[in-house]
């Protein structure tokens, strides 16, 4: 059934792009998530409100709508600003728009994950850090962060798996990821089902491999934790 008419390399090239988009947007999401979590736990009411608006709005609007908004709308916005500053016409690449949007969306989800993780870190450990005379920044990076990882990992894994699947949307804004390439190959060979099935299986491989990797990380970070 899987006669690919020599289109396998094209699909695999798309797979590589999919992975690239996923990893880059994950990095951005982690950064935003940490900032968001810090903001949500901050003492300033304004900052907390801002973070709340961010997570509520992002989680209330479909990813596809956000992506087209950032891709098409961002194009106009950037050039409006550019016009005033006297830049030349700027082309927002679908790659940048895709990574930015997905990173932006999952930053909101990771904000919640990280906030929960940070709140689960035992207060005594943090107080001990303060007692040693560490600055708040040192306490955060030396104590809160490493201890938070274990609590945040299950949520993090879940978000990563959803993120990996969300990358399929970049094909809608014209990025040549594996879904887009499967459409091309399927159209050319008149076997769209075969190629979409192949892509679906590749997604299963991707999520399967990350599942194994994440379980390994989870075991490492749970060393020394007694299980019931």
């Amino acid at each position: 059934m899987l006669d690919l008419h020599g289109y396998l390399p094209l699909i695999l090239k798309g797979t590589l792009l999919t992975v690239e988009v996923a990893v880059l947007s994950l990095l951005m999401a982690i950064l935003l998530g940490l900032i968001g979590a810090a903001a949500k736990l901050s003492g300033s009411r304004g900052v907390r409100l801002l973070a709340q608006v961010y997570t509520t709005v992002i989680r209330g609007v479909p990813d596809l709508v956000l992506m087209t908004l950032i891709y098409f709308g961002g194009q106009i916005l950037v050039n409006d600003i550019g016009d005033r500053l006297g830049w030349d016409y700027v082309d927002v690449s679908p790659f940048a728009a895709g990574v930015l949007t997905i990173g932006f969306i999952f930053g909101a989800y990771l904000t919640e994950t990280f906030r929960g993780g940070i709140m689960a870190v035992s207060r005594g450990e943090i107080e001990a850090g303060h007692a040693y005379g560490m600055t708040p920044r040192q306490v955060f990076f030396r104590i809160t962060m490493p201890a938070m990882v274990r609590h945040a990992l299950p949520g993090f894994s879940n978000n990563w798996l959803v993120l990996a699947k969300t990358t399929a949307l970049v094909s809608v804004i014209g990025l040549h990821d594996m879904v887009y390439n499967a459409g091309q190959a399927g159209g050319a060979t008149r076997q769209p089902f075969t190629f979409y099935l192949l892509v679906a299986l590749l997604f299963l491989v991707l999520t399967g491999v990350s599942d194994i990797g994440l379980r390994w990380v989870e075991r490492r970070y749970s060393v020394g934790v007694r299980k019931a």
């Binding site: 699947k165 969300t166 499967a182 459409g183 979409y196 679906a200 299963l204």
Partner: peptide
Amino acid sequence: GTPLLVQMFMIYHG
């Protein structure tokens, strides 16, 4: 484990 978009394409185009 697979994106909804791909599932939809499989049924619509596929």
